[in-house]
């Protein structure tokens, strides 16, 4: 059983079980207000699912790609929840949740703001029904996206933590490795190096 948290787009929290599926979920498509809702979403999912925290086997963290301010809220919450519960963090690439369950090769995109998109290119699912990410996640201007033949396109406004959690369960069953532990910002911090002080007189 897993608690899954993803704030790479809106805010999404779920509790999933390998056998029983989605036990509870809360989703908001709002691309702001992650920090406000994250607590009540987690608390609501725990209450609604009726599970005890000790029953969880881990905490899934959607590592992005996603706009940084919101993305960090979910990762921070997943990390400290896991610390408090004494459970491992399971980092996942958020885009993989979008491809999970699709049967055709797909180009997945999500909003990166500033007239750019995050994208990942997935082939058809593998023999175990798991997504096969061929390229990405990466950042591009909409005009520069790859347009390979035979690929469906999915422009997603939300990422479901329930899907991400179910995928993590399936990956665990099939002995797959999870994502790295770093947040997938895919952008450097906005910093303009100072050219030195400007004259005032």
């Amino acid at each position: 059983m897993l608690l899954a948290i993803d704030t790479s787009a809106g805010t999404s929290v779920a509790i999933v079980d390998r056998d029983r599926g989605v036990l509870a979920s809360r989703d908001s498509a709002d691309t702001r207000g992650h920090a406000e809702v994250i607590g009540s979403f987690i608390a609501d999912c725990l209450t609604e699912s009726g599970i005890a925290i000790s029953e969880l086997s881990g905490v899934v963290a959607g590592m992005g790609p996603g706009p940084f301010t919101g993305l960090r809220v979910g990762i921070a919450a997943a990390r400290t929840f896991a610390l408090g519960a004494g459970k491992p963090v399971i980092p996942m690439v958020s885009h993989d949740a979008l491809a999970f369950g699709r049967t055709e090769p797909t180009l997945v995109t999500t909003d990166a703001r500033r007239r750019e998109v995050y994208w990942s290119l997935f082939g058809a699912p593998d023999a175990d029904g798991l997504p096969t990410r061929l390229e990405g996640p990466a950042l591009a201007k909409p005009d520069d996206l790859p347009t390979p033949d035979g690929y469906a396109r999915l422009d997603a406004a939300t990422v479901s933590a329930a899907q991400l959690g179910l995928l993590a369960e399936a990956m665990y069953v099939h002995g797959r490795s999870f994502a790295g532990s770093e947040a997938l910002y895919l952008r450097s911090p906005d910093v303009t190096m100072s050219a030195g002080p400007k004259r005032v007189s």
Partner: peptide, 18 residues
């Protein structure tokens, strides 16, 4: 704001888990 949010989210999740 962005810095505060990390602490706020972390504190909420920690408090709930405990």
């Amino acid at each position: 704001a962005g810095a505060l949010m990390v602490g706020v989210a972390a504190a909420k999740a920690l408090a709930i888990s405990l």
